[in-house]
Design a binder for these strands. Structure first.
Ligand SMILES: [Mn+2]
Ligand SMILES: [Mn+2]
Length: 302
DNA sequence: GCGGAAG
DNA sequence: CTTCCGCAACGCCCG
DNA sequence: CGGGCG
């Protein structure tokens, strides 16, 4: 029942009319349709990267779970990557999405979010980007997030580094600084830490790197601690399990202050993609050298 | 969403 | 035969 | 060293 063939991969889809977004009436079928439509833009950002998934079989308000280990019933044509986790002392078999059919199969599993690693299989210990994750607290305004993001950009400009913003899909923003895959996670994290500290010095009333939630108050958390092996951010074009079915969306720096993250959803993003193309395509090409910036900062890590 | 364990 | 349960846990920082 | 965090 419900057999489909996508690029010569044949498999079954089920319960296409099951509502996953009750506030909007959006169904699992619409989720699958979205991921197939966006595949050409999304797949380059997933290719070669271990994936962490979040699944919501009974809708976004019901019980959900993370999945990193591939289930035994995974179709054999879906790529996986086995990786020995030192700490849990076992192999984890990660899914690696490289075809539209894989996205459709995963969406049929009620997988809403796609979280790729910052490093790829080719060089698993070396991230391809430094990331700054701006997490608003209850009581922060989007404009605070914008002000902080623009300071991050200005600091990076002055260091000679290009940076790329996207909505997280929720209330915050993610800033990517693509780098050559030659640095360790620790090196990239230290760089991001210094950057985050500088932002809190410029905007102490709205930005913090305080990890204790209670001590953040209404400030925006400038999270540099995602720069760790095995930690992830939601991918560009990943759907989020929130009312409206918002999508993590690449932005132009000039429009960061003009938009509202909720305007980009599984229903609106395709026309934007046709107009702008993939604004995050350069993130996969722009392999920057961190050394000059670290030298300017007096960072003794290289 | 689904397989396997428990009831 | 029906229901229940698991699907990630760990690196990092601070006190 | 334990606890909180994402
Ligand atoms: Mn975030
Ligand atoms: Mn975060």
């Amino acid at each position: 029942m419900g057999q489909v063939t996508i690029e010569s991969r044949e498999f079954a889809l089920s319960n296409l009319d099951k509502v996953l977004w009750p506030d909007d009436g959006y169904t699992k079928g619409e989720l699958i349709h979205y991921y197939v439509q966006v595949a050409d833009y999304l797949l380059p950002h997933l290719r070669g990267r271990p994936l962490v998934l979040t699944r919501f079989p009974d809708g976004i308000h019901r019980k959900s779970f993370y999945q990193k280990n591939a289930p035994d019933y995974l179709p054999p044509w879906i790529r996986t990557f086995s990786w020995y986790s030192e700490d849990s002392q076992r192999d984890i078999r990660f899914i690696v999405a490289e075809e539209a059919a894989t996205l459709a199969w995963l969406a049929n599993q009620a997988c809403i979010e796609m979280h790729p690693w910052l490093s790829s299989i080719e060089s698993i210990d070396n991230p391809d980007f430094a990331v700054i994750d701006l997490d608003p607290s209850p009581g922060s305004r989007y404009q605070d997030v914008v002000d902080i993001a623009l300071v991050v950009k200005e600091l990076l400009d002055n260091l000679g580094l290009r940076s790329y913003p996207k909505t997280s899909g929720s209330a915050g923003l993610h800033i990517y600084i693509p780098v050559e895959a030659v640095y360790t996670y620790e090196q990239v994290r230290k760089f991001a830490h210094v950057l985050a500290s500088m932002v809190t010095e410029v905007l102490p009333h709205i930005a913090t790197i305080e990890r204790a939630v209670k001590k953040r108050g209404h400030k925006v958390y400038v999270d540099y601690l995602q720069n760790v092996l095995g930690k992830t951010l939601s991918s560009v074009y990943s759907v989020r399990p929130r009312p409206g079915a918002p999508v993590s969306t690449p932005l132009l720096w000039d429009e960061v202050s003009q938009i509202t993250p909720a305007q980009f959803t599984i229903k609106t993003i395709l026309s934007r993609l046709r107009d702008y193309g993939d604004l995050f395509a350069p993130v996969l090409q722009d392999r920057q050298n961190l050394e000059p910036a670290c030298h300017k900062l007096g960072l003794p890590i290289f």
